[in-house]
Nucleic acid binder design. Structure first.
Lengths: 203, 203
DNA sequence: TTGATAAACTAATGTGATTAGCTTATAACT
DNA sequence: AGTTATAAGCTAATCACATTAGTTTATCAA
């Protein structure tokens, strides 16, 4: 029973994590939409039905990708933001967000699906991302719901920019790095200026 | 030749616009991902292969949806922004953007695909949207690339917020309308404050 | 009335997901 | 060492859907 606690399985067998990781490589290289089990099985040197021993079909793979993608993004943001505060922290966060999405476009897209209530991994990872944003914004001493509003604005801006960039939605050739920097700076200016809140903090 | 100019065709025949419109209804009701030709054909009381007389398969439908969606969004924005300027115009635009995306989630999502160079309708519609944004931001007298940066920031914020909202990406229950309003106001505050530009306008 | 055209249809093919049921390597236990 | 249960793999079959080929037929122009 507990004999297997300290030993690697010698069978060339797969497990769920391996399948999901392989799928992640595929979607980053080929796109999320064209993901299919035949290609995934071939990459793992296995026949398609064998995958069902480890994941619940194609949708199970997608659920796993969502959780993995959100977790990886969270780790990346955490690493970028640790030890930084204020404007420096916000810029570091925003740059890490964009860099991650561009390095892992398929996995990033996969993480944006509506979370099923039973996908607790995904939900937890989403909450951690939100927590990091809030932590970086903490120095601005936002009152009440203002911190939530600001965190949502920052996430929306980062996600929206990257998502439009990847979708080719910015027609013009004007430098995208400069636009992103400027966009983040606009948000920061408001936070520093402090006068954007409708219901002004009581005191 | 010109005998048909003033008369409706009595055959129950379809045309491309009718097919795309029916597809638009479907994707708004059922989602973009699950769109399929069998369902679309059934809705039009026709067998699946008959659709190929009017559109180039499923991908042709998707291309048509992208163009229709972008055009409809542009019209909506235009109607919302006409006659308004400054902060009022920006809010009207942002609210119209969000309302449109929530009323037509499938069509909105369809409009975000990477535009093929030959999809001139889509490209033109995208440019018109950008033009409306720039027009509404004109009163802020932004110099050089700053107008482009601001337009991109506004689009990114609106798209990002709505897209995350539709994807269930905001876990918390805090009022979404208030967050959206606050996010837009942050952008506006920067525009009015004016001090967010790195390369400050020369004069 | 007749012939051309376009739009519909049926039939067939291919890809991909999924399920059922069989086979066998591995690990636990004698 | 031998036995057995389990889990992981496999083949075969089914179903849904997209797409193409080839046929039929309604409409329009002569």
């Amino acid at each position: 029973m507990q004999a297997n606690a300290d030993r690697r399985n010698t069978r060339p067998g797969l497990d769920e994590a391996t399948v999901i990781r392989a799928a992640a490589d595929l979607v980053d290289a080929e796109g999320l939409e064209t993901l299919n089990l035949a290609q995934l099985a071939a990459k793992l040197k296995v026949k398609t039905p064998s995958l069902y021993n480890h994941v619940s079909g194609l949708d199970g793979v997608r659920r796993g990708l969502a959780a993995l993608g959100a977790r990886a993004l969270g780790e990346r943001l955490m690493r970028a933001a640790v030890g930084k505060s204020g404007a420096e922290g916000v810029f570091a966060l925003a740059n890490a967000y964009r860099a991650y999405a561009k390095e892992h476009p398929g996995l990033y897209a996969a993480s944006l699906r509506v979370p099923e209530p039973d996908n607790t991994d995904l939900i937890a990872a989403d909450e951690e991302i939100l927590g990091i944003l809030r932590a970086v914004l903490a120095p601005y001493h936002l009152q009440g719901d203002a911190l939530t509003h600001a965190a949502r604005a920052l996430r929306s801006l980062a996600h929206g920019f990257v998502s439009l960039e990847l979708a080719g939605g910015f027609g013009m050739p004007t430098d995208l790095d400069a636009s992103y920097r400027a966009s983040i700076r606009m948000l920061l200016t408001s936070l520093e200026y402090g006068d954007w809140q409708p219901e002004h903090p009581a005191e």
